[in-house]
Write a protein that binds this DNA or RNA. Structure first.
Lengths: 129, 129
DNA sequence: GGGCGTGCTTTGCACGAGAAAGCTAAGGGC
DNA sequence: GCCCTTAGCTTTCTCGTGCAAAGCACGCCC
């Protein structure tokens, strides 16, 4: 198609950007969890990610249904506490996602470099309205 | 709060992840555009990002209304063509966003490193249901 | 025992991504 | 001249989902 540009079809499609993970709040949750194999409590997550209870609850449900986190309800003393961890699969998906992010960043850096010298020209044969 | 963890409030909140930019398709569009100061045509973008006409149109409108891209309608020969470029402000916002992404990645890398040795313990005083 | 705090869940809304259909005009056969 | 196709977008619709606010359950304290 646009072979003369030497840019393959879908070069910037980033298909690997998992919808479930590619979300501000969830990204934070997963990054928090990724560092601690022993998990985090609901309230820890809430504070680390600056989320409201409701929000966090909903995101955790989504992540759990996707098999990404493991939710264990238990007690500390006599108070209920929810413990969250990454599942093995979740960790894998997270790392895959991160790898794609890296390639996005690489593209961005290259773009910023290549654009250094601004060419304010029009494309071949293009005439403004 | 959780000072003993030495993790400040909101450590993983990533407030800087601009909602307008933090979206798969738009991220691709902007990265494509960032590299070419002379802009890209609608159909180029469509192919580069593997987007449908409708989708691309909608995203471009959003980006235009946010003042991130500049849309010029013109002609190539007798056929209409739409030329898209990053605005100065758009470029700035893109670079800011990218900077935040970098910090996310840094966190992720650190997390992956720290989690090397899995401690499958329970938190202090936690007992499963 | 009644109010208060903690720890979540549920409900409701509003926005927004993506699919699908539409719309306009230019070629191309006949 | 007339239709059919193709290019090049735009508009509309629907459903998912992020987020806020209200709700619920229980323990604690005076």
């Amino acid at each position: 198609m646009s072979d003369k540009k030497s840019q393959p079809e879908g070069r910037y499609a980033y298909e690997g950007l998992d919808r479930v993970l590619h979300e501000k709040a969830r990204l934070g949750i997963l990054t928090s969890l990724a560092a601690r194999a022993d998990g985090l409590l609901f309230s820890d997550l809430k504070h680390l990610c600056n989320l409201t209870d409701g929000n966090l609850s909903r995101h955790l449900t989504v992540l759990q249904e996707a098999g990404i986190v493991d939710i264990q309800k238990g007690f500390r003393g006599r108070r209920p506490q929810t413990l969250c961890r990454l599942t093995e699969q979740g960790k894998k998906r997270y790392l895959d996602y991160i790898a794609v992010l890296e390639s996005v960043l690489a593209d961005a850096v290259e773009a910023a470099k290549g654009a250094r010298k601004l060419r304010r020209t029009m494309p071949e044969g293009f005439s403004p309205a």
